[in-house]
Each structure stands twice: as structure tokens, then as C-alpha cells.
Simulated scan of single mutants.
Amino acid sequence: MIEASLQTGQLLTLIIMAVALGMDAFSLGIGIGLKGIRLLDIVKLSVIIGLFHIIMPLLGIFTGQYVSTLLGGVATVAAGGLLLLLGGHMIYSSLRGEDVPSFNHRSVFGLTVFALSVSIDSFSVGISLGMFAADVLLTVLLFGFIGGLMSIMGLLLGRKVSKGLGEYGEALGGIILLTFGILFIL
């Protein structure tokens, strides 16, 4: 009885952590969706984000306790910096119109930058989880599934809203990313 309640408590804790980590993917998804995105790109980006939400905590878990104290804050600041750059570029691109090439979320580089920016905090969480007796497979699969699912929800929501906003959608998406980047750094 006590063992079952401990397992339920651990599962609930992991779900809450996965949702908290997935909120970055959700907010980024809204920002990118506001720019306008095809359904195929939504699937690709969400799968990549889900994979990064599996790989990054795994890397963190295997990195160990020593690195935890060194990289905990650095990972969050790096993610904030990436979001600041992406958001600033989206705002600049929307204000300048067609003159400025937009950041391409369809390219391998663009997919990697977006996925890394929302999953880098999973690395530091993985380091912390490596110090505890958490079920590694369950943890990373849960993080990946929920991260991918939340990015799909954000991308679809942003896409739907962008149809009503027209050309201002990209600027609003940039403002959202810029805001989250500032919050990460502070």
C-alpha cells in the first residue's frame, strides 16, 4: 500500500515537472504559430522538440552531480538568450517586411535552435533527477511526450490566432518570445 502510494506520488511529480518543462515548448509554439506555419511543419517541429525533451534530460542524468552546480543557472540564461534573439529577429523581420529574411523554422538549423531553446532547461532538471532514484525511462519518455504535445498545442493555437491577426502575427509572436526570454534571464 505504501509502495503504491510512493509510486503514484513519484508519477504525479514527474507529470508536473514534464508540464512545467513543456510550458516553454507551448509558449514558443504560440510565437511560431503566430508567424504562420503549415501542419506538416507543426508535426516536424513537435517531434524534434519531443526528442530534445528526451535527449536533454538523459544527458543531464548521465552528466552527474558535479555539473549540476555549474550549469543550473547557465542553462536557463542560455535558453533566455536564444529566445531573446529569436523574438527580436521576428519583431525586426515583421517591421521591415519582405526586406529581411525571416528565421526559417523549416531548416535543420532552425529546427535545432528552436528545439534546443525550449529543452535546454530539461538538461539541468535531468542533472537533478540523476541524483535521485527516478525511473529514467519513464521520466524521459514522459518529458518527451508532454513536451511534444504542448508544442503541438501551442503551434496550433498560434496558427489559429494568426489568421485573425494577419501581418501583425509575426510581431506579436516575437513579442511573446522576447518576453519569455527576458523572464528566463531574470
Score class of each variant (00 low, 15 high):
Ile30Thr: 00
Ser107Cys: 08
Gly72Glu: 05
Ile42Gln: 02
Ile2Trp: 06
Ile2Met: 08
Leu149Ala: 13
Pro101Asn: 15
Arg96Asn: 11
Val108Leu: 15
Leu6Thr: 12
Gly33Trp: 00
Tyr92Asp: 05
Phe114Pro: 02
Leu51His: 03
Ser107Gly: 09
Ile185Phe: 02
Leu183Ile: 15
Leu51Tyr: 05
Ile182Gln: 07
Gly97Ala: 08
Leu95Tyr: 09
Ile32Trp: 02
Met150Tyr: 05
Leu71Trp: 04
Val47Arg: 10
Gly31Tyr: 04
Ser102Ala: 11
Gly169Gln: 01
Met90Phe: 11
Gln7Phe: 11
Phe52His: 06
Leu51Met: 09
Met56Thr: 10
Phe143Cys: 06
Gly80Ala: 07
Ala25Gln: 02
Phe114Val: 04
Ile16Arg: 14
Gly60Ala: 10
Leu11Arg: 12
Val118Glu: 08
Glu3Tyr: 11
Ser93Gly: 11
Gly166Tyr: 05
Leu86Asp: 04
Lys163His: 11
Gln65Pro: 09
His89Ala: 04
Gly80Tyr: 02
Arg96Lys: 15
Gly81Tyr: 03
Tyr92Val: 06
Ile91Trp: 04
Met131Leu: 13
Leu40Ser: 14
Asp99Tyr: 08
Gly166Glu: 08
Phe184Val: 01
Leu172Ser: 01
Ser93Pro: 01
Tyr168Phe: 11
Thr8Asp: 13
Leu186Ile: 14
Phe123Arg: 03
Asp24Ala: 04
Thr8Glu: 15
Val125Asp: 01
Phe103Tyr: 05
Ile2Ala: 08
Ser94Val: 01
Val43Leu: 15
Met153Cys: 14
Asn104Leu: 05
Ala133Met: 12
Leu138Asn: 10
His105Lys: 09
Leu59Val: 15
Val108Phe: 15
Leu39Pro: 03
Leu155His: 02
Ile15Met: 14
Arg106Thr: 15
Gly81Cys: 12
Thr112Met: 13
Leu137Ala: 11
Gln65Val: 09
Ala18Cys: 09
Leu137Asn: 11
Leu84Trp: 09
Gly181Ala: 05
Phe52Asp: 02
Val140Asn: 00
Asp135Ile: 03
Ile146Val: 15
Gly88His: 05
Ala20Glu: 07
Met153Ile: 15
Ser124Ala: 13
Ile185Asn: 04
Ser119Lys: 03
Val140Glu: 00
Leu6Glu: 13
Gly60Phe: 01
Leu84Thr: 04
Gly147Pro: 04
Ala20Thr: 13
Phe62Arg: 10
Met153Thr: 10
Leu34Met: 07
Leu111Ile: 09
Phe145Glu: 04
Arg38Lys: 09
Asp135Tyr: 04
Val43Gly: 13
Thr69Tyr: 12
Arg159His: 12
Val140Tyr: 00
Leu21Ile: 09
Ser46Leu: 01
Tyr168Gly: 04
Met1Glu: 14
Gly154Cys: 03
Arg38Met: 08
Phe143Glu: 01
Leu142Glu: 05
Met150Pro: 00
Leu95Glu: 08
